[in-house]
Design a protein around this nucleic acid. Structure first.
Lengths: 196, 196
DNA sequence: GAATATAAGATACGGCCGTATCCAATTTAG
DNA sequence: CTAAATTGGATACGGCCGTATCTTATATTC
């Protein structure tokens, strides 16, 4: 007779998040369904709804677990401008990869349809991008290129905000956009003369 | 016997958008349904889906028609900083009004759940906020406070991006946030010394 | 180790989505 | 004025959502 083993707690959550991640890879956010994830994880909707209020939260949980920014190489090129451009460039490359790998051919789908607040609070309050920016500033300050490295939170997260806005709005991240963001917005702030 | 008049084209669209707007006011985005709007407009889903691909687009259309930024008073206080703060302050007031009026008590709902790209392209490419910012810059330039008024598009739309990010992420727009955005981000850009 | 509490899993429900299909009113072409 | 082409309207369908309810396996407690 068949064994009736029941997964619980962490084990179950892991199975669900893994299934969610795979579904996301295979189908894209738009086409992922809660029921589909439940089925793929060999459980039922009920269990998922007991833990996450909706698809967005579930996917965010999966992203948090598996969707780490991969193999990012901290630049330190010797100039803040180049560091920032390098960072943006790597993001653009990542975006390209995502659009091929994650949504393998089939769908012209995008991250586009995640819901607002979720993503924002995830990316901004989460230290993700902030952790990438701060070192660049530390380097620049050490070189004397900028006057100090302890900028307000809102400034440190600004590159992330810009990136997000660009990607979501334009669905792409062109080199032109990258240099504009750096030269027209970020550098003027970081290089601004002290308050007068 | 009853008349069987059929609305067409513009007349029909107007009726639908009006219904959509009213539903939005009454129920909030989250709880608005396509079927509900169709019913309220005395027509059917089919007709709506022939014109708009999904709820987001329909609501955006309604917003474009009825959701104009109301009674905005151009500041011109004599300093760019005060102009910007004034603008942000009016936005905060508007936000407050929306959260009471539009979502009348009942729901702790928010704009939050509109979908990404839609809103972004609407707010950023649409000239809405840009049209508010440019005059401020013209004034400042005329006063000699800033060196020029013809900034890159990306810079002119930045205040809007910041506002949107703040509202969507934090669901509020505190005075502290306003001054930080102005003093830490916008002013440093506009007052930056010429490229060196 | 039995009793109790907790959490998983199954099932069912009403509601809305988005599409397809068909019919009927109104416009346009001839 | 009639025929053809549009476009609105009705209905039906499968699919998923989100909730509620019930049962049954596993953990916890005594």
């Amino acid at each position: 007779m068949a064994k009736k083993k029941r997964r619980r707690g962490t084990e179950l959550v892991d199975a669900i998040l893994t299934a969610a991640w795979e579904q996301l890879q295979a189908k894209g956010y738009q086409n992922v369904t809660i029921e589909g994830i439940a089925a793929a994880a060999a459980t039922t909707k009920t269990v998922l709804y007991r833990r996450w209020p909706d698809k967005a939260h579930l996917i965010i949980a999966a992203l948090s677990k598996f969707g780490n920014l991969p193999d990012y190489q901290a630049p330190d090129t010797g100039s803040l401008r180049d560091d920032l451009l390098n960072l943006f460039g790597q993001m653009a490359a990542l975006l390209d990869r995502l659009q091929e790998e994650t949504l393998r051919g089939l769908l012209a789908d995008r991250i586009q349809h995640l819901e607002f607040g979720e993503i924002f609070s995830h990316l901004n309050t989460g230290e993700q991008l902030k952790g990438l920016i701060q070192p660049l500033l530390d380097h620049a300050a050490a070189r004397g290129e900028i006057s100090h490295a302890d900028w307000p939170d809102r400034v440190v997260t600004l590159p992330g905000v810009l990136l997000l806005n660009e990607i979501l709005g334009q669905q792409t991240l062109t080199p032109a956009a990258q240099t504009e963001m750096v030269d027209d917005i970020l550098l003027p702030i970081f290089l601004a003369r002290p308050a007068q």
